Simulated assay, not measured.
Amino acid sequence: MTGTAEMTSTRTAQRTGIAALRDPALWADRAAAVGLVALVLVFQLLDPGFLAIGNVRSMLLASAILVVLSIGQAFVVATGGIDLSVASTMTFAAALFGYGFAHGWGLALCCVVAVAGGAVVGILNGILIGYGRITDFVVTLGALSAASGAALVIADGKPVTVVDAGLLALSARGIGPIGWSVIVAAVLAVVGHVVLFRTRIGTHVLAAGGNPEAATATGISVARIKVFVYAASGLLAGIAAILLVSRVGAAEPASNTSFLLNSVAAVVLGGVSLAGGRGGIVGPVLGALLLTVLSNGLTMLGVSPFYQPVAVGVVVVAAAFLTRWRR
């Protein structure tokens, strides 16, 4: 009798496991992780050099900037908002860095100015959205244009070459194949995860995104939360600017809008609800890695760079489609 009961229990468990695998919600909740693994396997089969140490290092370095931007975007989207100015804020911060470097301010002061400049843009966004009650789309769209223009004015439309051994070490050195910029991004991801899930402010962020009226009724200042998340996004954009300058060796005043699209795509792939109230950091980080792997793999296969935005767009739409099954 005991053996029969054990067999029945085993069969029930197997049926439950099979049913779980057939559940679309299971795959939708893990879209970034599943997609990342699938892409790595496909590209490795098509090009055996894909997982070579040098290429892995290159992909990790390329993903570090997007990971940092995606962390800030994840906080904003978790409140039901969106930061369209994140890429322009990064460019503005990079221009500030280049201006300071050109005038001999010193590396430390240049970094502080870049991060502070990004944070100021974020704080202004948050104040206008939270206290001014202006739609986030309008405010951040305006900030996108203003920050891009300010970057061009500060740099006089010209890139500033940055030659500093300490700064370039962020990309050129590290621990094994892992560069220092990747370690910086990983540390920021851990900090973001802790803040979102282990602190009161993180609970308030999710509450404000899930139901602003109920959050206000419980004493949460939704306006302050808005200022916090946009300030965090701006501050992280400032840090991303430093990583970008260290990688290219110059402060470019021209805005790269692909970072905006990819940061939103990474967040959507990572399972953060565009409606707010649902967030995470691990998912967007995996989403950023997936997009980097996709771009790198297509390049290695000789696919024209003109088709790469098409591939990213398809991935974003597919991820958005999967949200209908997410728990």
Rank of each mutant, 00 (worst) to 15 (best):
I71P: 05
A237V: 01
F306H: 12
L170Y: 02
G104Q: 06
I183G: 03
D29S: 15
V184I: 15
R173N: 14
S85Q: 00
R57C: 05
I201V: 14
Q14T: 11
G132E: 06
A319R: 07
A223P: 06
L109H: 02
A151L: 06
P284Y: 05
L322H: 00
D29C: 05
E213A: 12
A217S: 13
Q44S: 15
L152M: 13
S233M: 08
S304M: 11
A155S: 15
L45D: 09
A5D: 12
I183S: 01
M7E: 12
V285F: 00
I134Y: 00
D136M: 08
K226W: 13
S246P: 05
S70F: 13
V182R: 00
G276H: 05
S58C: 02
V115C: 04
Y99T: 13
A64F: 02
A319N: 07
A5C: 01
I175L: 12
V303N: 03
A74G: 04
F75T: 05
A108P: 01
W27I: 01
T257L: 15
G238H: 01
A119F: 11
T135R: 10
R22Q: 10
H204L: 12
G287E: 02
G122R: 07
A33M: 14
T8I: 10
S171Y: 11
V229P: 03
A19R: 12
L26Q: 11
L291P: 10
T323L: 05
T257P: 13
M7G: 02
I18F: 11
V184S: 05
A241T: 00
V162E: 00
G122Q: 07
G80L: 12
V267W: 07
V160W: 02
T292C: 08
L196D: 07
V227H: 03
L206H: 00
Q73K: 11
L141T: 03
A33Y: 11
H103F: 07
S255E: 14
V312T: 13
V139I: 15
L60I: 01
V67E: 03
L244A: 13
G210Q: 04
A311E: 09
R173Y: 12
P48Q: 10
L322A: 15
G249R: 09
A250G: 03
L107H: 01
L46Q: 09
T12H: 12
A254K: 14
G104P: 10
Y131L: 11
V190H: 04
R15Q: 13
D23N: 15
V315C: 12
A20H: 07
V264R: 09
L66N: 10
V191A: 15
S221V: 10
V205T: 09
G3H: 06
A25H: 03
V264H: 07
